[in-house]
Amino acid sequence: MLEPSLYGIHKTNRKGNDLWGKNQFNSTFPASLACYMRDKDIKAVYLKVNEQLQVVAEEISIDDLFNTTAPNEEITFSFESKYQPYQKFAFDDIKGIDLVIKHGEEWCRPLEVKLTVVPDQTTYNEIEANWGAELVIRPASTSYCALGIAESCENDLREIRDIFEPVCYGIQHWDSKLEISSIQGNLITVLDIFQRRFCQKQKPFLMQPIWKTKGKSPLLADNAFDIFVWSDFALCRTFIDRSTSPQTEVNRFMRSSARLAKVLYDLSSTGKAHLEKIYSALTYGLQSDKEFALSGKITRHYMNSPRRVHPILPPKILTELILNGGEKKLSPERRFDQTIYYSTESLFNEL
């Protein structure tokens, strides 16, 4: 009897039940969806930064997303794994990222994976054209993002130092809210200069599959699934664009901008950065478990594609993605409010 499996995932560090757990399925299913779109020659939506620092929507093949033309059965999907080529840019252990793509001994692509629903809690009651998805970003996401940018610009570190040094050299205490808040405008300016100069070197970083429901209900819409891909530069725009805050404050977005500037400046100066120290010290009184969150009212302006509202794939593809009874391996959480909503409708109709 064939084991439950997911389309396209043959070589992986997750086997059996590890494909289907709550936290695991949120990354294994997106990988399978990407493999399916790849074999059907369906491109993903690619969000990238242009020279005007605007995030624009184009298309990207899954070959380019995976950074390999090898067939799915030859690719290794390593979940929650370290992308070893980036380790040389850090003094400390860079730890893992959601998904690492390898072909044999070739390191192809590290990817953050964010499976999100459309509409989210902030947009479901608006007209359908305004629906959006919430995106929650971890500190590990932005640190890997910075490492990827460093790799892309490895041969340009002297020029990068020239961009950042006029502002960063004079900073005495990077962990000081007062000092950083007083120069936040200057930090944003140099980040903008950097992105304009090197936007041609951006690359895919975050894979955001979306699943669309009928309004707030859990029922899938007729157009149910798609994949958006954020470049590393595009993801950075989400916090750089929102970094301005009152003169004495440093909000979460400005914190992310300061961390990015510090990492890039250190890398351009010494070739390596103390990532753990930077992320633990530069908190500015904010909780450190979450980098920042973007509601659907924000992400919809970046995910400016008709496919945000009209995903390209129907619900029936689930039968091609989840194989050999894999759906029976899923164990969704039971919530009391959900049980009341779906199980007692007849009781309330009798009143």
Rank of each mutant, 00 (worst) to 15 (best):
P139F: 02
F89C: 00
Y169K: 04
I137K: 01
I97E: 09
I94C: 12
A150H: 03
W107A: 07
V118D: 03
E126R: 08
P166H: 04
F91Q: 10
H173P: 15
A90Q: 08
E134H: 10
I160S: 09
G104M: 01
A146V: 10
V117D: 03
G148R: 07
P166S: 02
D98L: 03
Y144T: 07
L115K: 10
P110Q: 04
K177T: 12
D92H: 01
E154D: 15
A150C: 09
S141R: 08
W174D: 14
V118E: 02
N130I: 09
D120I: 00
S143F: 05
D162N: 15
R109A: 07
E151N: 08
C168R: 07
N130D: 15
G104H: 00
D175C: 06
E159P: 11
V117W: 06
Y169C: 05
T116A: 11
T116S: 09
E159R: 13
T123S: 03
W174F: 14
P110R: 03
Q121A: 11
E134C: 06
L157E: 07
I127E: 14
I137F: 00
K102T: 09
E134K: 14
V100E: 08
E105Q: 15
I163K: 05
A146L: 01
C108R: 11
N125S: 12
L135W: 07
F164G: 13
A140W: 04
L111W: 14
K95A: 15
E134T: 04
Q172A: 10
N155P: 15
D98G: 02
H103L: 11
I94P: 11
L115V: 00
W131G: 06
L135A: 04
K95G: 09
L178I: 15
I149G: 06
F91R: 06
S152T: 13
I97W: 04
V118G: 06
R138K: 15
T123V: 01
L157W: 05
N155L: 12
I94N: 14
V113D: 15
L135I: 07
G148A: 05
Q172M: 12
E126C: 02
Q121F: 15
F89V: 00
F89Y: 13
R161I: 01
E112R: 04
L99Y: 03
P119S: 03
K95F: 05
W174C: 13
D156G: 02
C145R: 08
L99A: 10
P139H: 13
I97F: 06
N125H: 10
L99S: 05
C108E: 07
E151G: 02
E159D: 14
T142F: 01
E154I: 02
Q121W: 13
E112C: 08
F91S: 11
E105G: 14
N155H: 14
F89H: 03
K114H: 08
V118Y: 03
E165D: 08
I101L: 10
K102I: 08
A129V: 07
E126L: 05
S152G: 03
D98W: 09
E159I: 13
C153Y: 00
L135P: 05
R138S: 09
P166F: 07
E159A: 13
S152N: 13
S176P: 15
Q172E: 15
E154H: 14
